[in-house]
Amino acid sequence: MLTKRIIPCLDIKDGRTVKGVNFVNIRDAGDPVELGSAYAQQGADELVFLDISATNEERKTFASLVRDIAKHINIPFTVGGGISAVADVAPLLEAGADKVSVNSAAVRNPGLIDELSKAFGAQCIVLAIDARRVDDQWTVHTHGGKKATEKKLFEWAKEGQDRGAGEILFTSMDHDGTKSGFAIDPLARLNAILSIPVIASGGAGNKEHFIGAFKEGKADAALAASIFHFGEVKIPELKSFLKQQAIHIR
């Protein structure tokens, strides 16, 4: 039985973890390698590193950071942020990343998904989708959720799958940061219409919220950032709690 995955997400700027990190037993909370290793040690199933750099100079730092992460972390990890061409991906995979995630650039140019999938295989392409409800329709947003697009979540996810994405990472902008739980209904709907795994993101506030994502939302994996960084939910405790709830967890 395949286990549901727990995935901490780290935002990286200029080679450092940003967004508040308040993590016990870490000498330097800003060091992504150290933080990632600690999560791996605690039983995280995968890690996501998002490059939120604004400049090309900072992006170069990110590629060398990926090499360092690969050297020290022996669980799978995904990197994303600012990927808009096949040429952006090759150096990241070469540096040791297992998967890449694409978001805004794929909305602008959907053919990018086909190109990446053909070049590197579906298993390493994650289509990240940020969406929020607008007039009762789940509408895709780009640029960190700031810009509304014409695309609708379910159609876009299906199109992404058909174009060769290996996983969908769905973030509900309505739930992100609220700590009120994951967006269960759209997750369940995604699961019903897709044949690739879905990663739930946005809204995790406590251990119980993960049950909703996995049981009712039928997500294959759940991603969270601040609750892990601030130690509000600890991965070993979360995992033993979910096991008690009869959810298959590593």
Partner: peptide
């Protein structure tokens, strides 16, 4: 196979397994 009986098994098979 993606469907086995009524049940769905997303492909790729991604994750940790015993």
């Amino acid at each position: 196979p993606f469907h086995v009986g009524e049940r769905k098994f997303p492909v790729p098979h991604i994750g940790w397994d015993r």
